[in-house]
Simulated scan of single mutants.
Amino acid sequence: MSESEQLMVVDEAGQPLYTATRQDVHTQGLWHETFHCFVIDSIKQQVVLQQRADQKKDFPGMLDITAAGHLLAGESVADGVRELEEEIGLVKSFEELHGLGVYQEELRLPGFIDRERIHLFLTDSAKPLTGYSLQTTEVRRLLAFSFAEFARLAEEETTVLTTVEGETIQRNQFVPHPTDYWKTVYAGIKAYCER
């Protein structure tokens, strides 16, 4: 996404205020809306995460949500489903997503203040990791974690995680979402699988 693309600035309740560039939104710390979708395999009890492409401006090479993106000015939350197809080649309708609510996240780094109203979703897919078609400018690769291992992201003391393939991943290799964010996602996954 270009730094000049227009995002809708919103208040903390999600009411639209005015449009601003992505760059202004992040330098001024303006609230805006994003779409996050985690792909799970409920049969294998695994969560799929992406490793961001090395050329990404924000958090290059770090592990993050399976598919995510900013909602542009004029887009609805349902329009965010495009991120699944664009980033990992997974075609889903908005109705095939399971909503986990809205999570408000504020992240402050030097020269970067990210205030997001995150529309959180998950979707179920039995596709193997090799079955996805990655947008290489966005996604370097996909990794799978067991539900139990993924749940450890919600624990402050967790420093190392292990993928289902046995690869060791350091905590500092993940985009720095607060532990409460991971806790919210895991609780949503658990509730979805227990229904």
Rank of each mutant, 00 (worst) to 15 (best):
D41N: 15
P16E: 00
T21C: 13
V25L: 03
I43V: 15
T66A: 08
Q55S: 14
H36A: 11
L17K: 07
T34E: 15
Q46I: 13
R52T: 01
L63S: 01
D79Q: 05
T66N: 06
G61R: 02
D54R: 11
S76W: 00
F59T: 00
D54G: 14
S76H: 12
V25Q: 10
D24G: 06
T27F: 04
F35V: 06
R22M: 01
D64W: 11
I65N: 08
Q55G: 08
D64S: 13
G61D: 07
A68S: 14
L17T: 00
F35A: 08
Q28D: 14
Q51D: 06
I43A: 15
Q45M: 09
L49Y: 10
T19G: 12
S42R: 15
V77M: 00
L63Y: 15
L17H: 00
T27H: 13
L30S: 02
K57E: 14
G74H: 02
F35K: 09
D24Y: 06
S76P: 04
T21V: 14
Q46K: 15
E75M: 09
V47P: 08
Q23P: 04
Y18M: 14
F59L: 01
D64G: 04
D54A: 13
V25H: 09
T66Q: 04
I40G: 07
A78I: 05
D41K: 03
C37T: 12
Q46G: 07
W31G: 06
V48H: 05
P16G: 03
P16H: 00
K56C: 12
P60I: 00
F59W: 08
L72W: 04
T19D: 08
R52D: 05
S76M: 11
V47K: 08
T21I: 13
K57M: 13
E75H: 05
Q51T: 02
R52V: 01
V47T: 08
A78P: 05
G69L: 00
H36R: 09
G61N: 05
V77T: 13
A53H: 01
A73T: 03
D54Q: 13
F38L: 13
H36N: 14
Q15S: 13
T34P: 04
V39S: 06
D24E: 15
K57D: 14
I40F: 06
P16F: 00
K57Y: 12
K44E: 15
L49T: 12
L49Q: 14
Y18P: 10
W31R: 04
L17Q: 08
L17R: 07
T34N: 11
Q23D: 12
L71C: 07
H70M: 12
T21L: 11
V47E: 07
E75W: 09
Q51F: 02
Q28V: 03
Q28A: 11
Q50P: 04
A78F: 01
V77L: 01
I43F: 10
